Simulated scan of single mutants.
Amino acid sequence: MTERLDVLVIDDEKPALDELAYLLERDPRVATVRSCDSAAEALRVLQESDVDAVFLDVQMPGLTGLDLAQVLSRFKAPPPVVFVTAHEKHAVDAFELRAVDYVLKPVRAERLGEAVRRVVEARGPMPGEDVRIPVERGGVTRFVDRSDITHVEAEGDYARLHTAEGSHLVRTPLSSLAEQWAPAGFVRIHRSMLVALPHVQELRSDGGRYVVLVGGRELVVARRHTRELRELLTGTTT
Rank of each mutant, 00 (worst) to 15 (best):
T85I: 15
T85K: 05
A86V: 02
A86K: 12
H87D: 12
H87L: 12
H87E: 08
E88S: 09
E88G: 02
E88W: 00
E88I: 01
E88Q: 02
K89A: 15
K89I: 04
K89S: 15
K89D: 13
K89W: 13
K89P: 00
H90D: 01
H90R: 09
H90C: 12
H90N: 13
H90Q: 10
A91F: 15
A91W: 09
A91T: 09
A91E: 11
A91P: 05
A91G: 03
A91I: 07
V92C: 07
D93Y: 09
D93T: 03
D93Q: 08
A94R: 14
A94L: 05
A94V: 10
F95L: 03
F95R: 07
F95H: 00
F95K: 10
E96I: 04
E96N: 12
E96A: 11
E96K: 11
L97F: 10
L97W: 11
L97P: 13
L97I: 12
L97N: 14
L97K: 15
R98P: 02
R98C: 15
R98D: 14
R98M: 15
A99L: 06
A99Y: 13
A99F: 05
A99Q: 13
V100N: 10
V100Y: 11
V100G: 07
V100E: 04
D101L: 12
D101V: 07
D101C: 03
D101K: 09
D101T: 03
D101Q: 06
D101S: 01
Y102G: 00
Y102C: 04
Y102E: 06
Y102V: 03
Y102Q: 10
Y102K: 04
V103K: 03
V103Y: 11
V103M: 02
V103F: 02
V103S: 00
V103P: 00
L104C: 06
L104M: 05
L104V: 03
L104E: 06
K105Y: 03
K105A: 02
K105W: 00
K105T: 00
P106R: 05
P106Y: 00
P106G: 04
V107Y: 06
V107F: 03
V107T: 05
R108N: 08
R108F: 02
R108E: 10
R108P: 03
R108L: 09
A109W: 07
A109P: 09
A109T: 14
A109H: 11
E110W: 15
E110G: 07
E110N: 09
E110V: 14
E110F: 10
R111E: 11
R111P: 02
R111Q: 08
R111Y: 11
R111K: 11
R111C: 00
R111T: 05
R111L: 10
R111G: 10
R111W: 00
R111V: 05
L112A: 07
L112H: 04
L112P: 07
G113Q: 05
G113W: 08
G113M: 12
G113H: 01
E114N: 12
E114A: 15
E114P: 09
E114S: 11
E114M: 15
A115H: 13
A115S: 12
A115W: 08
A115Q: 02
A115P: 08
